[in-house]
């Protein structure tokens, strides 16, 4: 018996078993529960009412669409501001670049609620009114490091021979960038988009703090429903988000798991 156990543990592939069980219980089952709750009513019988409510209910739908727009603008701004920064970092001497990259990531070590409250204080200090502008600024400020890091990572690994080959073949600096460097860095941008777009839609608390409770994003709608006990409707709204994630992940294909790996910030 004991020998059997030892030889069972000795086979290294069996070492996955605890984690597989854990994943089933804490990832797959909970995800199925979202689907289950989304299609049942409070009594537990099957219904489409929750999904229908989302389509008909203008408030939830509007918040959702508004959040998507805010997330798109934030993502775009993060790319526009972050790409040049990542590019400059990748061209620097590696020791200095590493130090600067650390400096870019470091603010994330301060609790994001405190950072957001400090941003509010900053706006007050310069007499900038809180509202939509402040919201976008706060979002870009919070998520910019997540865009810079993966792009920098990819740019820095770009094969220099390809760039030299492009130059040897007569490309001017602009062409080298547009035809060689930029296309090669697209996976980095994809990783960044994954790490910015969805989280912005689902943030809650940040939006309220930056707009004095005037604007709420989809994350807040989700949270309110769970807190008010309307779990089934909350689950249906979560399902909408899950579908959006599924679509993004499918569009990226292999990219998403790579994004996850590149998302590793240390």
């Amino acid at each position: 018996m004991q020998r059997k156990l030892i030889s069972f543990l000795g086979r290294r592939r069996n070492w996955t078993i605890p984690y597989v069980l854990f994943l089933v219980f804490f990832v797959l089952v909970p995800m199925s529960l979202i689907v289950f709750y989304a299609f049942t009513n409070a009594e537990g019988s099957f219904t489409f009412a929750n999904i229908q409510k989302f389509w008909i209910h203008p408030e939830a739908m509007n918040t959702f669409l508004y959040s998507v727009v805010v997330a798109l603008i934030t993502t775009l701004l993060c790319i526009l501001i972050g790409y040049p920064a990542a590019y400059i970092l990748s061209k620097m001497e590696s020791r200095n670049a590493k130090l600067l990259v650390i400096l870019f990531i470091l603010p994330m070590w301060i609790n994001f609620l405190i950072r957001t409250l400090a941003t509010v204080a900053l706006f007050d200090f310069f007499k900038i009114p809180l509202g939509e502008g402040a919201l976008i600024f706060g979002m870009v400020y919070n998520f910019l490091p997540f865009m810079i890091y993966p792009i920098y990572n990819i740019l820095q690994k770009t094969d220099q021979n390809l760039i030299e080959a492009a130059q040897d073949l007569g490309a001017n600096p602009r062409q080298v960038f547009l035809k060689t460097v930029f296309p090669l860095s697209i996976p980095g941008i994809t990783s960044g988009v994954i790490m910015v777009f969805m989280p912005v839609i689902s943030t809650f608390a940040i939006a309220e703090l930056l707009t004095i409770n005037n604007i709420k994003l989809f994350g807040t709608t989700l949270q309110e429903n769970i807190y008010n006990g309307t779990w089934n409707y909350g689950a249906a709204l979560s399902l909408v988000m899950l579908l959006l994630i599924g679509i993004t992940a499918l569009l990226n294909g292999e990219g998403s798991s790579r994004a996850a790996e590149e998302g590793n910030l240390i």
Partner: peptide, 10 residues
């Protein structure tokens, strides 16, 4: 890949 609020709700 899941936003934290989805993990939280699930």
């Amino acid at each position: 890949l899941n936003p934290d609020i989805i993990t939280a709700i699930s």
